[in-house]
């Protein structure tokens, strides 16, 4: 059964970004808890994650699924 859309942030903060090729508006905002206890963010005391944490850098978000 194809699940309910959990997702994983694949990588982030590679560097600052180039001129946008995307849409004119930023993506809608959201905040979700980071469930990986080994996450680099955990060490920074940040239990949740949002695209707003990665403005001024590029970020890549991978959408997998659980069954």
């Amino acid at each position: 059964m194809r699940p309910r859309f959990p997702f994983l942030q694949l990588s982030c903060g590679l560097a600052a970004a180039a001129v946008s090729l995307g849409s004119a508006e930023p993506v809608a905002d959201f905040v979700l808890p980071d469930v990986n206890p080994a996450s680099v963010r955990t060490a920074a005391g940040l239990p949740s994650i949002s695209p707003r944490n990665y403005t001024e850098t590029i970020s890549a978000w991978y959408f997998g699924a659980e069954t």
Binding site: S20, D29, P51, T55, F63
Partner: peptide, 26 residues
Amino acid sequence: AVGAQSKLQAVYRDVVILDALNQRVT
């Protein structure tokens, strides 16, 4: 209730790339 997947216009197994202004690049 959050709907991050639809907000990023992602489908299953997509890697969505956001730029410095959080605009969806591809």
